[in-house]
Design a protein around this nucleic acid. Sequence first.
DNA 1: GTCCTGTACA
DNA 2: TGTACTGGAC
Length: 224
Amino acid sequence: MKDDNKDKSLVNDVYHRLLTAYGLQHWWPAQSPFEVMVGAVLTQSAAWTNVEKAIANLKKAQALSPDAIRKMPFPELAELIKPSGYYNVKVRKLKSLTYWLDENYSSDIDRMEKADTEKLREELLAVYGIGPETADSILLYALGKPLFVIDAYTKRIFSRIGLTNEADSYNDYQRLFMANLATDVIVFNEYHALIVKHAKEACNKKPVCGNCCLSQICRYSGKI
DNA sequence: GTCCTGTACA
DNA sequence: TGTACTGGAC
């Protein structure tokens, strides 16, 4: 029998430990919701420092708008986003996103933001190149919708703690967080960002458990 | 499971 | 020289 209270206590405990260790992360660094959407696509399997270069290129070319990306020739757009890697598939992804935005919301983010969250999520998942993580990142970080973002780091950290199995599905993980946290956009925002921070600082692929703020509650640390 | 790809850092 | 990077399509 699963102990739901224990899950709830641990999910909240981990958040406070990470927050104490690393402080507020203030994601997502961007000047507009559309910039967040573009970043969410470009950062797929790419280091954020490389995404920043691609976004800087787009800004310099006055191309960081739905219309500009939709209308720009494929090779030209590929050249601009090249630093973020996988540039041919990512051009297709950005094009698909902007065509969807144009056809359904006249490229108007405010109009998009007013739509029902579940409906938006379904629509985004149907767009080429947008899977659950990218969809939830866009909904949370661009539009402020209360969805918890799951990524490879979340799976790594929480399966090591012993709260989950790494093979559990995206929806399983999302349910764990959304069922055990108050529905709070700020907390969802910071928690995911802190998970990314922790995966870089300590819970690497080869973990550094010596100076880990979660070692007291993590099975992997060997202390429990 | 494999492919897509430039960049940084050990 | 190898490895990892805030995944998703097929």
